[in-house]
Design a protein around this nucleic acid. Sequence first.
RNA 1: GCGCCUGUAGCUCAGGUGGAUAGAGCAGCGGACUUCUAAUCCGCAGGCCGGAGGUUCGAGUCCUCCCAGGCGCGCCA
Length: 576
Amino acid sequence: MHGLDMETIVEQLLKRALDALRGRGVIPDDFTPDVIIERPKREEFGDFGCALPLAMARVARKSPKDCGQDLIETLDLPPDLFEDVSFAPPGFVNFKVRPEAWFSGLEPLDRSPGTFGDTDAGQGQSVLIEFVSANPTGPLHVGHARGAVLGDALGRIMKAAGYMVETEYYVNDVGNQMATLGRSLHARAQEAMGLDGEFPENGYQGEYIRELAALFARGEGQDFVPKSYEDLGPADHNPAVTFAASRLLDRIRNDLDGLGVAFDQWFSERSLHTGGQVPVAVDSLLARDKAYRDDSGAVLFRMPDDDEDDRVVVRGNGISTYFASDIAYHHDKAERGFSRLINIWGSDHHGYIPRMKAAMAAFDHDPDMLEILLVQMVTLTRGGEVIPMGKRSGQFVTLKEVVDEVGPDAVRFIFLLRRADAQMEFDLDLAKAQTMENPVYYVQYGHARVASIVRKAEGMGLTVPSYTDEFGARLTLPEEGAMVKQLCRFPAVVASAANKREPHHLAFYLMDLVKGFHSYYTGYKHTQKVISDDGPKTQARLFLVSCMKAVLGRGLGLLGVSAPEEMHYGGDDEQD
RNA sequence: GCGCCUGUAGCUCAGGUGGAUAGAGCAGCGGACUUCUAAUCCGCAGGCCGGAGGUUCGAGUCCUCCCAGGCGCGCCA
């Protein structure tokens, strides 16, 4: 293991060269440019490039070419690492790494394939990722799926990148909508029993309420249903509310499970009330003048920014708002000792960010420790026609429905193949119809293909060998060299996806990586097969493709997508 | 009206802290299977990166102003 990744090595070489040039007075002492290493798009430019000569030219009052030569002559190159270091106009220094040097990067992969890709990029920071957190008033829909997939994948990726990650679902199990939920259920239950239930004006219209209501009426709700809703007691002890919320939460849990999403914690908003943390937080704000009471008796949170209105924390009627709970909740999170709090919100909540950050500051937490990732809306269409969604309207396609029809792997990959902060259209018919052309199968198929090769080799009595330096020299095809390089990038890709909180980079990397393999496989299937009469070559190639399998498997795992050992295309257009 | 996000090939989207000739998938066209799985591969075609200015050696990327779409701006959550 070379300890440092190639890119860092190149960067340090250049920095040392700059130091030396400063020492010799070639460039001024105060010239300390950022050394940005890039990976050139064109292969002829090598593996790494740097535009330093362009920046130097001005201060050194020399041509970029001369600066480039100065730089190259000054570089203290380690032996056996680079094949070529040269200047290229208009002002680049390019580095080409020797294939054998790249190959040695696969040694750690061989040693522990299950952890290859792990880094300490996160430096052990403890992070709480809160996501989904949908109210238990109905089943999850497709929009929730996007946030769920993003949060789950991000958690997996950040763990690999050396963060201590916990995931949490915040359950809004108090408030107006719980009361509305109870009323809706109660009314439907009365209808189910042939009584004349009065359905609330803003009640939840979905069919699922009727189903739950029927269950309730037949079972534990029997005795309650005939009574008037008011006689069932306050919302937080109301059997209709409790029944509906707990059943819906179970359903949410199940649906998420079907998508491969699990949480470390389910945090109840109600527990903040029963535990007294909400009033304590409000009092604390009042005591420190971060909030004040107005004429009506309402408590308002002072927004530090004059452009923002102060926000109601406790209403005039004495009932606290959702914001009050959120303040207490986030204070609680911070007190639990996390160094970073990541929230994944639907973009329709973005207006909430300033007050949440202000709330953090009001409790003397660094507002920057709270990171809000916004997930843009998913417009669901069916056959090109937009499906209007809304819990109140009762018309929506559920997460479960999509998962059942398209499959969890494909659903996850479709979401993860896009940046979270861009709106997207999800056409159900298209997703279903294109199931077999879905990019996820492209990646999975690569994994299955390697598995198939390994199976065949084992059937012939061969075993996949361990790493040896010698393999590098035997892998002479350009495609093989390219695969080695791509495989070596994996840890850096994981780290970058984690640090930027952008899992889609990993999904794109896997697409790219497996493309190299498919191309190699198909291109040489008649001429240069992995398993051939050439024993030494076979060994090296078996090693290479099993590295490919390991990285594909690990990468898919970090996205929460399965990596099958075998895939068979039913292919024929047999309709039902 | 104010704020946030988005605008890149016919469609869906990538394009690390500005870099060399802007990429991929799908759709289209033309090719490749007596095989370690054709759910694959190879080739062709496809672009004023929404528009206009600006910053500089250099802009899809940064700044300003427009245009278009989405979402917000409750004592709702």
